[in-house]
Simulated scan of single mutants.
Amino acid sequence: MVGRGLRSWIESSLPFMGMVLAVTALATNMIISKMAMSNGTSFFVLSVYSNVLATLILFPCGFLFHRSKRPPLTFPVLCRIFLLACFGCLADIGSYAGIRNSSPTLASELLNLVPGFTYILAIIFRMEGLNLKRLSDISKILGTLVSIVGASIVTLYKGPAIMKKALTLGSSQVLSPLQQNWVLGGILLTIAAFSTAAWSIVQTSILKIYPAEMIIVAIYCIFVTLQSTVAAVIAEKDLTAWKLQAEMGWVAVFFAGIINITLRLYLMSWCLSRTGPLFVSLFNPLTIVVSVVIGVIFFHEVLYFGSVAGAVILVIGFYAVIWGKARESKMKRDAQDVESTSHQDPLLQDSIEEA
């Protein structure tokens, strides 16, 4: 009995541990990529190489996963995956460019804009309803507005530095203020957050007509690789930029390709299949905590009051949206239960009469 209870506890804890690992991978990738770019690695080239590596891993895995039953791959599906890759490529390059001009801490904070943007787009494309008489919808609208206000504070207001210096791993400061353009970085990261939200909308439409997640991801990685390569060729005129001379550049490529893209994608997909999107989305604010801890303690990241204040407001808005979604889901379940009961009652009455 004790062994069964322990096994049940471990199984219920696995999604939690999986999302903690996924969030830690994302936050760590932000730090490592910032270090690589500070040492001269082009974020365009970093995006290309990491996506090439992820493609080499995910493409065979995708078709191996669906080797027994595979839906027919039509031209309209390919077009939608290509559009999906456009948003993914924009989010990828925008994130790297934003981190290069600001900091990983700011990037992790602006990740919380994604649920708000997703909700707005879902209303526009009629994937979400809007009824101002329902408390859940009011909570989602107010939460979205509060999230945008919090993100604006993080982007436009620094304030005094709260933590200026901590334990470092070298003599040079990794995130020098001279390397930072807070406003430009915030704008780029906001564009990346919007692209991520649009990505989720397009992905939802694709899954409805082509329910094979791993194949979609495999083809998606190929398209992102091609698109990021075109962007890099246009942006990087100097051929020496394609050579990763610094050791940190290779570390960033391998970490992004293997851990941040391949492993994190698998972990999130695994957790989504067992817990649903609400559980997974609740871990976004944890990215802020992990990024701050890693950045401030180990990589000389400067922590500003504006980042803390804006992050608190942003998280409050984020959880208001999540609360509204949870309340809405509960109302739908209650309505389904009532409908199910109403269908069962005549059957019960018939059985009583026959008896």
Rank of each mutant, 00 (worst) to 15 (best):
W199Y: 13
S108A: 15
W250V: 13
W250E: 10
T28C: 10
A27E: 01
A311S: 15
K69T: 14
L189S: 09
F298W: 13
P72V: 07
I215T: 10
I93H: 12
N39H: 10
F299N: 00
S33Y: 01
M163E: 09
A97W: 07
D137Q: 07
S68E: 10
L226C: 10
D345K: 12
V174Y: 05
D334C: 08
S172A: 14
V217C: 14
E247W: 15
E109H: 08
D345R: 11
S152F: 10
L267H: 00
K332E: 11
K158V: 03
W250H: 14
F59K: 03
M248L: 01
D334V: 12
F65G: 00
N260D: 15
N29K: 13
V233H: 09
V23I: 14
I57S: 00
A161L: 07
E301C: 07
I258F: 08
Y157F: 15
S172L: 12
L73G: 02
V230D: 13
P104I: 11
V23H: 04
I216C: 12
I187K: 06
V23N: 05
G185I: 04
A246K: 14
V174E: 09
C271K: 02
F318T: 03
W323D: 02
V154Y: 03
S13Y: 00
L56Q: 00
R70E: 12
L132W: 11
V230G: 10
S351F: 11
K133Y: 10
A311V: 07
T155M: 05
L83Y: 00
I10R: 10
R134T: 03
Y157Q: 11
A256G: 06
L113H: 02
A192T: 08
G310I: 12
F59D: 02
K332T: 09
L188T: 02
D334H: 13
G94M: 00
C61Q: 02
R7W: 06
K165I: 12
F117A: 03
V149A: 09
V174T: 07
M214A: 11
Q179C: 04
F59R: 01
A231C: 15
R274T: 06
V174Q: 03
G257R: 01
N51G: 04
S136V: 06
S340K: 05
I216K: 06
T275A: 12
L84A: 01
C271M: 07
D350Q: 15
